[in-house]
Write a protein that binds this DNA or RNA. Structure first.
Lengths: 182, 182
DNA sequence: CCCCAATAGTAGGACTTCCTAGTACCATGG
DNA sequence: CCATGGTACTAGGAAGTCCTACTATTGGGG
């Protein structure tokens, strides 16, 4: 269905969605065009690169998670609940930690609940709040999926540990400047 | 509507979707949890960071483009056409260069055509092929949008030019390993 | 003690991405 | 000369994101 990162090193692996590898880097190519016409192009190349990286990684990860009946969005929600002390959190807390819109949480929880991987519960004191609790099946599922994902480094290839750490570091600077945290 | 990247340096700017800055970095926090439980966490942190960076940048850019009646997806398509020699390209070529699924091109071109920023034309010799040509209005629009985007470094903040270049470089390694190009 | 602003969650809608299927057309081999 | 396989595009649908309301509930100030 997706290949789940088997096959070969890097060259002849079929592209996720049926595209094939190009003989040149289209981002570098575009960057060249920009430079000719506008001069500075660093930020544009970086932004385009990030967009593309996200697309690649999400495709890779979703492909790995598909056999588990999960998407990355729902997987992340399950992980968050698994890490929580009581195995449950208010929806609002989930949105905050996952850094997504409240309606995205509603969406994810709806689907997870349909699969009986989580359960909505009333909050004991605040009737506005909905608690989301991970089920035993949810725990089992996320545990297995995690093993699988870690086995393939979350689809991340081509970077050694130091480079991986540096990448995270640079993006942390970006995120801080964007106001993600103080 | 979105703020268009004005206001302040980094701290008190309202988050794109109404979330506010947290007092800690949720990705670092999650990474700590992972390390406790599973040991290695480098790839997971990097992947999560990229996902978040994409979300931030896309929100930023779409906010800037909204006054121009464009989204980033459609903007990229217009830029591609603007850079092409004849101002027109086959849809398939566009999908290849933009690295998106053919149906995504159809979608983007549909909307651009409704706004009369591009025009579908028959290919002179191959009747399977649809050529997409940028209109004068399309050129004008993308020109103005580009000025705006370059003025705010495509929403990229917090990195100096060297760091920006390094970020692109690291992601290029990732993309190459994923088979984006040879 | 009550009104009113803030908070929590959801419904509905716009947009994007991908996938699967289908149709139309080209190009090559028998 | 046609049959077959590959290419180009689109229709329909699933999933995710965000946004704008809207309802319910809470908690504080007058």
């Amino acid at each position: 269905m997706r290949g789940v990162a088997g096959a070969g090193g890097s060259a002849q692996r079929p592209r996720p969605n049926g595209r094939r590898a190009l003989a040149f880097d289209p981002i570098a190519e575009a960057s060249r065009h920009w430079r000719e016409r506008f001069g500075e192009t660093g930020p544009m190349a970086a932004v385009t690169s990030i967009m593309r990286a996200q697309q690649i990684l999400l495709g890779e990860i979703d492909g790995i998670l598909r056999p588990f009946g999960l998407s990355f969005a729902r997987y992340e929600a399950l992980v968050l609940l698994m890490f929580s002390r009581r195995g449950s959190l208010p929806m609002s807390k989930m949105g905050e930690r996952l850094m997504v819109h409240p309606t995205s949480v509603t969406n994810a929880v709806d689907r997870l609940e349909q699969d009986e991987l989580v359960r909505r519960m009333a909050h004991p004191t605040d009737r506005r709040t909905t608690l989301v609790e991970i089920t035993d099946e949810g725990r089992a599922r996320v545990e297995r999926a995690t093993t699988e994902l870690m086995g393939v480094d979350f689809g991340l290839r081509g970077l050694d540990p130091a480079e991986t750490a540096r990448l995270t570091e640079l993006i942390t600077l970006l995120r801080q400047a964007a106001g993600d945290f103080t």
